[in-house]
Structures are given as C-alpha cells and as structure tokens.
Design a binder for these strands. Sequence first.
DNA 1: CCCTGAGATATGTGATCACACATCTCAATT
DNA 2: AATTGAGATGTGTGATCACATATCTCAGGG
Lengths: 241, 241
Amino acid sequence: MNTFDPTMKSSRTLVPVDVSTVQDRVYQSLRLGLLKGEFLPGEQVSIRALAEVFGTSPMPVREAVARLIAERAIEQSGPRTLRVAPYIASDHENYIRIRMQLEGYAAERAASAPKNPAFIDALRRHNDSIQEALDVRDFDAALAGNQAFHFEVYRAGGYPQLLDIISTLWLRTGPIVASARKDEGLFYRIFNNGVRIHANVIEAIIQRDRAAARRAINLDLRSSHLSIRRFYQRASAESEV
Amino acid sequence: MNTFDPTMKSSRTLVPVDVSTVQDRVYQSLRLGLLKGEFLPGEQVSIRALAEVFGTSPMPVREAVARLIAERAIEQSGPRTLRVAPYIASDHENYIRIRMQLEGYAAERAASAPKNPAFIDALRRHNDSIQEALDVRDFDAALAGNQAFHFEVYRAGGYPQLLDIISTLWLRTGPIVASARKDEGLFYRIFNNGVRIHANVIEAIIQRDRAAARRAINLDLRSSHLSIRRFYQRASAESEV
DNA sequence: CCCTGAGATATGTGATCACACATCTCAATT
DNA sequence: AATTGAGATGTGTGATCACATATCTCAGGG
C-alpha cells in the first residue's frame, strides 16, 4: 500500500503550519507596539481593553502582560492598575548606564569579529535609511532604521543571550525614546546626530578598533539620553505653569 | 467627635497588613527555590503539580510561571511542557560572559563608592559564613553565604536596576550552580576557592582599586564556571557509558 | 464651603471548566 | 518481530464567572 513519505515533502507545497499560541502573538504584538512607540510612558493599560482590541478573551493578554511585567516594560502602579513604565529621570539614567555596558561590550565584539563585506553594507544601508526617513519626516521609519542599525551591530558581536537582554532593555526605554516624537525638532536633532555617530561606529568596526566602537556606541546612547532628559525637563516645567 | 488620627499610629501597635497577591507569593517562593537549588536544571515542572504543593488553584502559578519564563528561568521545551532551564555548556558560558560584564561593573563601582566600615564588616562576615558552612558540610548555608556576599558587593555599587538584572541572571544560573552539590568534592573545591577570591575582592574594595575589584569578581565567576563545566562534561561522559 | 460616605463602575485576581493535543501503553495487525 | 493505531492520561491554553476593592461621582450633613 502507498504510505505517506515525509521525505517527499520537499517536492510538495506542504509547509509547516503556525503553531504559536494566542498569548505568544499578543505578546509579540504588544512588544512591537512598545518599540514602535504606540504607547506613552506612564500610560495606563487595561487587560480587558487590550483583549477587546485583539479580539480575544482577557486570558492570553493576562499571560502576555505578566511577561512584560517581568521585563519591567509594564508595571503595577497600584493594587489593580497597570501602566507602561513611566519616564523617571534617575531610573532612565541608570538603564542607560547598563545599556552602555552591554551594548558597548557587544560593539567591541562586533569590531573584533571576522569581517564580512555584506555586514558593512547592511550597516550603511540601515544608517542611510535613517537619514532618508528624516528627510521626509517619517519618524516611524527613522525609529525602525535606528533599531535595525543597532541590532545589526549587536547581532554581529553578541550571542543570542546578550541580544536577548539588550532587547529587554530596549523594551523598557523604547516608549521613552519614541515619545520624543512629540517634539519634532528634538526628534530630528537626536537622530540626525545619531546618523553621524553611527558613521563613527561603522568606521571603528572597519578599523577593528574595539575601544573606538565602544566609545561611539556609548556616545550615541549618552547623547540621545541627554536630549531626552532635557525634553522631559522642559515638558515638566511647562506643565507646572 | 473623636476621629481616628492616622498620625497616632506610631503610638499604637497597628501595622500595615500584607496586601501581596497569591501569585506574588508563589513567584517569590519559586524564585527562592530556584536559587536554593531545589530544582534541577532541565527538570520538568507542571503547573497543576506546583499548584497542589502550594495549595492554590493553578491560576496564580500560571502567572508566576509566565514571569519566570520571561526571565528565562523556566522554558517551554515543547508545546505543552515546561522545564527548568537546562544546562547547556555554550549557553551557560555566554551567560557567564554577560555576568562578568555586569557584575564586574558593579564591583568596580563598589570599589569606588564611599567607604563604610560596616560594609566591609558585612563582607567579611558573609565570607566567613561560607567558610564555616564548608567546615560542617552545610552546602545550603554555603550557597546562601555566597549569594549574600555577592549581593552585598553589588548593592554597594549598583543601583536598583542593575541589581535587578543581575538577580535575573542568578535566577538562570542558580539551579546550575546549586546542582554542583551532586558532587561534594567539586562543590567544596568551588566554594573553598571562592572564599580565597572573595578575600581579594574585599582587599580591592578597601584599596579602592576598581580594576582589581573587577578582576577578582570575574575570576570568581570564571573559575567556578570552569569547574562546573568539567563537572557536567564528566557527568555526560559517564551517562554515555 | 468642606468633608463624609453611599453607590456605581471598572479593575486585577483567583477558581473552574472545556478543549486540543503530546505522550505513553498495549493490543491488533502486518 | 515490528509497526500501527486506539485509548487513557496529563498537559498547557483559553474562556468564563465570581469576587474584593480602588476610584470616581454626587448627594447629604457638618
């Protein structure tokens, strides 16, 4: 009798189906939304409301939110209230310090990793895409390009575990950076400055200069941090008037 | 009419009651169990079984486990199976590298932080407690002493966010280190060696020598890592016989 | 005018049920 | 003897319900 031969599958069009769970997809969706700046720092979120948006029961959202709480991207601000991690100047500065350690380390390793021409091309392409996005005031694309550039570097220098931790840290600071869009001038300055610094990162990697690569990445983090801090200082000063 | 004056509470015995949720307590309990080595790396866990142990419904355990999954302390090894993160040599080495960056950084900062006599005393006391525990072969106490020593250092040099991330990393490597108890000789050697290295850490902190503090902490991590790797290599070689 | 407290509303939390499915056991088939 | 597949069992997953309580609104009393 003819039986199904799994080794034949390459000659068929059958392909593995998606086996992910609802909570996984909700989690990924929330994660992406946080990175894209669709949530404001400190914004209150509700499990039921999110469930309605996703068209699911509250159950999968609960699980996804529990994971985001563990990653400190969402926090419990009261006994029965959840919110996106707010901007707190001192906390944010501390996170930047940690990111400088880890992302600087990853950049160092990227600089000393075996060179690959396609890799350098990719870095240039990502950096150019930021500039192009800025030219047409497409801030979503600028954010995406910035993220792509950084993770291209870290992927080259980091192992999966390092990348994973760095991702978690981006998840925490993501809404904060993204909220800089509120001030178009500020946003433009941050990322315009970033493009120049990224060029230094690329140069350091080409030269295999570990220390310079770390310095450049750290400068990128620090300078955008300072701009954002000024932004929030000004914003809180205005709100007090 | 006499009304209740909350400012009087200091003269009464009334004290805030525990408002933590069940899932919080379950989470803390699981976390402590992982750090104390009550779970083996790769050990399968079941939500329902844990719920029965805790005397709750599966619900709070689900939430707690979701958080531990996000912290990579527990992982989904299959569609409907959960297990404690197993020992995988290359993964563990990567985590050690990350820990060297972060814990080394925290140690550096501890060395340059303003000196406090009570702090040095606490370090010595913790380190002595490890030695005393080893003398009577009390491995639980040795593990606890080691953890207390390290976090005393990190608390002095780290801010809450750094401490938090380091804690998460300990949660992942906790069961692995704790499992070294299976080989009493190995365990004794690791921690006996650790006590000597800790003395160097203390000395570096007293001397305010940042580089030496980082080196000593990194040596501690690396040497115990190498011992554990040998332990697992031997164990897997035996199991193949 | 300020404070109190009742009532309405919305929230996370926990329990319970139903379900799909991975895994194992073991007898029937080839 | 090896392989198949039915059945039992245990698992995470998702939906639903019940509940305590935080927050807000607003009328009543000081």
